[in-house]
Each structure stands twice: as structure tokens, then as C-alpha cells.
């Protein structure tokens, strides 16, 4: 016999009200990040991106620009989810926890927007 109501069982969202959505999103982004991260670090190491002209030429390749945008979406999503879990686990004070969770969300959204915009600006720009 279950003490849970039929409606809560049908919804399957548990006491946290969001079910396993967070867990699944972290795993799916992790899966995407395996090839994207390897491609990213070896590309940055291979193309001498310390040189401005080489960097612009690299970002002007449409396949590179699309891969970078995909990488940043998965990366910042994954990072936001991970930092959220770390804050929830180690920050006991409710006010500090809420403040850090909000700041972490703003941090990730702001940097994701900046990273994607910077790539698109160069990719769409004259060359």
C-alpha cells in the first residue's frame, strides 16, 4: 500500500516537484560534452589561436561556429546544474544558499550569452 496520492504517483515529480529532470539534463549534457570538449581543447591547442588573425579565421568557419555554440549551450547548462548541486549540498544557511543559487544562475546566463554572442558576431562579421 502506498501513502502517496494517486495524482502524485501519476505526476511522478516527488517532493522536490521536478522529478528527475535535473538528473537527466545533467547526464545528457555530460554525454554531449564528451566529444565537444575533446574537440574544443585539441582545436584550441592545434590552431595557434593566440594570433588574432588565426582566431578570426577559425571562428569564420561555419562548422566551427555552430560546434562552438552547441558546446557553450551544453557547457553552461551543465555547469549551472552542477554548481546548483554543490551549493545545495554545502551551504546550510537558507539566505546564503538562496543568494548563491540566484547569483550562480545569473553568472551562467550572462557568460553563456556573452560567449555565444562573441562567436556569432565574429562568424557573421565581414572577413
Amino acid at each position: 500500500m502506498s501513502l502517496r496520492s494517486p495524482l502524485s504517483q501519476a505526476r511522478g515529480l516527488g517532493s522536490a516537484k521536478d522529478g528527475v529532470g535535473h538528473w537527466w539534463a545533467q547526464r545528457l549534457t555530460a554525454l554531449a560534452l564528451v566529444p565537444l570538449s575533446l574537440w574544443f581543447v585539441f582545436s584550441v591547442a592545434h590552431y595557434r589561436v593566440a594570433d588574432y588573425g588565426t582566431m578570426l579565421a577559425w571562428l569564420h568557419n561555419p562548422y566551427v561556429a555552430v560546434a562552438l555554440v552547441l558546446y557553450f549551450i551544453a557547457l553552461f547548462y551543465h555547469s549551472a546544474l552542477g554548481v546548483q548541486v554543490v551549493v545545495e549540498d554545502y551551504v546550510a544557511n537558507e539566505a546564503a544558499k538562496l543568494t548563491l543559487l540566484v547569483l550562480a544562475k545569473f553568472f551562467h546566463f550572462a557568460l553563456a550569452a556573452a560567449s555565444v554572442f562573441a562567436v556569432l558576431k565574429i562568424a557573421f562579421g565581414a572577413y
Binding site: 588574432y52 582566431m55 578570426l56 571562428l59 557568460l111 556573452a114 560567449s115 554572442f117 562573441a118 562567436v119 558576431k121 565574429i122
Partner: peptide, 9 residues
């Protein structure tokens, strides 16, 4: 990472 890309832009 974001600072690197923004500096390029």
C-alpha cells in the same frame, strides 16, 4: 573563456 571570446569580438 567568455573573456577570451569577448576580447576577440
Amino acid at each position: 573563456l567568455a573573456a577570451w571570446l569577448m576580447s576577440a569580438a
